[in-house]
Amino acid sequence: MGLYEFAIYDMFTPTIAIFAFGMVYRLSRYLFLYKRTAQPVWRRTSFVHRIYILIDAFLHAIVAAIKRSKVTFVTGIFLLHLFGVIPILFLLSHHIAWWSYYFPPYSILRPFAIPTSSTSSTLTVTAPFTPVTDMSNGFVNTIWGPLTIILNGDVLAILAIFGTTFKLLERIVKKVKERLDRIRVGDFVALVLLLVILISGYLATHHLPSNEIETYKLMLGIHILMAELLVILLPFTKFFHFVFGFWYGKLHEAYDLWRRGL
């Protein structure tokens, strides 16, 4: 049995089981530590203002980053998250097919699928059409229209790889040069794992480094297995921010701002 079969057939169930256990463990800690206390008198603000604050709570750190941390914004927020991992993970056509297989309602997002590349490819889920030009390639017809030139798996993956590599190197430099406590071993594990997933996914999609089926299966096997490792580690590492920390933190912050009337 090869790595691909192992990742697909043997590791899927244990991955979900460990993930579920981890989530229950982490969330139960929050529940057990919840303490109900008296509340201060809330400042009066309108319902509309509270909705604005709720939305703003999710956005103001990003706006602050644009103003004062441009490098972090471009590499960490934009390349790595908003224009890299998030659209690839949830909207890349291959991933939509995967999500839909395990969770059929997900297929509702099919019209928003992002193709592998802007040029035609048998790997895309949308039908290619031939433009009325003398170019040799057809173009993929997606709901994204001309945006497909940038909203495609190749571009997004390269940007995400760039963002992840930058963050990795930045952390190495900070750890070595400034000896910062805040740069943790877990940061390197998470970023290296993400990088391996991105690179192996890119190589598998393009049948690289060679066009043989065994190489393809090996790359795809690495990609899936590392993704499963990420899911296993998710509840126990910084990846937890993606499923819980970010949402809890921002909702709590909005609640706190409501209280203070900000």
Binding site: R29, K35, S69, T72, R182, K238, G245, G249
Partner: peptide, 16 residues
């Protein structure tokens, strides 16, 4: 408490 637990556990060291 749970809020402080979040402060302790959810940092990704982004440095923003």
């Amino acid at each position: 408490d749970s809020v402080t637990l979040h402060f302790l556990e959810s940092c990704v060291s982004c440095g923003l």
